[in-house]
């Protein structure tokens, strides 16, 4: 029997499944946060060039990865919403954008606070930094468009189209360090030939990445459950008024 993703796109089934998974997601998030912070702050070496500032990496790199992964997920959800008109996909995209915006802002802020001691400047208008800033504006535009129309369906459609057009920015962010000369260092994790980083630093990095992924799943579930319940309340209210 073929796996049918539509079977899980039913709000009732989503409530059941997310309710079942929530305690596990909470557990994994708490454990990876504790372990990740312990290794990042106490049990990982300083960098031979960057000294202690390397500890910013354990927030910066996972946050930047999440900013792109969430955007891609949002684009997939938006595409599914636009093509199959599935309300749960639109709901997922709507709930993802504030989380993505938070991670993008965090990546920009931590990058700036890492750039000052290492590069001697808080900000440069180079390809990597500018395209990541554009990503923040795309998230903000998505959130603004969702609420810009009296008819929520029009807002959802416009925000979905903006999200899909903005996908072009993702490969630009990822490959900007290879395509243009930049102050930002080239990829050292996801690259041909495997990661060029010592395992002692890879462990906290991996744990913080898991922590952020767990956090994203947790907040996404909470926000989607809240939206589903709110729409049920709206439907009941309408029935009450007209009944």
């Amino acid at each position: 029997m073929a796996f049918n993703i539509n079977a899980f796109a039913n709000p009732k089934r989503f409530m059941w499944l997310s309710g079942l998974l929530l305690p596990w997601v909470i557990g994994i998030t708490i454990i990876t946060t504790a372990a990740g912070l312990y290794f990042a702050l106490f049990d990982s070496p300083t960098d031979y060039q960057q000294g202690e500032t390397v500890r910013i990496m354990y927030i910066h790199v996972p946050a930047a990865s999440m900013s792109m992964i969430i955007y891609i997920s949002m684009a997939v959800a938006s595409a599914m919403g636009l093509i199959w008109k599935h309300p749960l996909s639109d709901l997922a995209a709507k709930c993802m954008s504030p989380i993505g915006a938070a991670f993008t802002f965090l990546a920009l802020f931590t990058g700036s606070f890492w750039g000052k001691p290492m590069w001697g400047t808080w900000w440069v208008w180079d390809a990597r930094l500018t395209s990541e800033l554009l990503l923040l504006f795309l998230y903000m535009g998505h959130m603004a468009l969702l609420n810009a129309f009296d008819d929520p369906a029009r807002g959802t459609k416009s925000a979905g189209i903006l999200c899909l057009v903005g996908v072009i920015n993702i490969p630009i962010i990822k490959f900007s360090v290879d395509w243009w000369n930049t102050l930002h260092q080239p990829a050292s994790l996801v690259k041909a030939g495997g990661p060029a980083i010592h395992p002692d630093m890879l462990i906290p990095l991996g744990l913080m990445f898991l922590c952020f992924t767990g956090y994203f799943t947790l907040v996404l579930f909470i926000r989607m459950r809240s939206e589903i319940i709110s729409s049920k309340v709206r439907a009941l209210r309408l029935r009450h008024v007209h009944g």
Partner: peptide, 23 residues
């Protein structure tokens, strides 16, 4: 943090405030 605490702690602080706030 070897003189870099003023750069490192705001990063961890913002991460905590932002993520806990959104949660």
């Amino acid at each position: 943090m070897g003189g870099h605490g003023i750069y490192i702690w705001p990063c961890y602080g913002l991460a905590a405030v932002l993520l806990i706030g959104l949660l």
